[in-house]
């Protein structure tokens, strides 16, 4: 990869933010499985495999499946966050593969958050 200049940084930022804002990128949903050491120890890999399997089965290419580090609430791992276009993100807790499949069908395909597994909606405070 080429070495960056400061201008490139700005370009990456702009491109990346539009890729990742669902609307502009043409995506319908983004699912983040939180995979720090704590999440992985609690079974986040099973959640991830169940999710990728369902996405492949459904043949959906407008869903972003991604990972991130520890989401902070170790007591309720594995955690995953589902963001559907035009709705606040919903964070699910105490997950396993089965629950993830259910969330995929109900929330990601159906648009209805699965309340019984949901922990919270919205974004965390940062400033």
């Amino acid at each position: 990869m080429a070495r960056l200049t400061i201008d490139d940084l700005r370009k990456i930022k702009e491109k990346q933010s539009s890729d990742f804002s669902l609307r502009k990128g043409g995506y319908s949903a983004k699912v983040t499985v939180h995979m720090g050491t704590c999440g992985i120890a609690a079974g986040a890999r099973d959640v991830m495999s169940a999710l990728t399997e369902e996405v492949t089965k459904a043949g959906m290419d407008n869903i972003i499946v991604t990972t991130s580090g520890c989401a902070g609430l170790c007591a309720r791992e594995p955690l995953a966050t589902v963001e559907i276009i035009n709705h606040p993100p919903v964070r699910y807790c105490d997950l396993n593969g089965e629950k993830m499949r259910e969330i995929f069908k109900e929330h990601i395909l159906g648009g209805n958050p699965v309340e019984k597994y949901a922990l919270v909606r919205g974004c965390e405070t940062t400033y």
Binding site: V90, V120, E124, T125, T126
Partner: peptide, 25 residues
């Protein structure tokens, strides 16, 4: 589903060091 502001675990936190927590790969 409760909002962040309704759950004390989230309400009292402010993320600076952890600003990208759960958001980036």
């Amino acid at each position: 589903i409760p909002a962040m502001k309704d759950i004390p675990f989230f309400r009292y936190q402010v993320l600076r060091v952890l600003r990208n927590k759960g958001l980036i790969d």
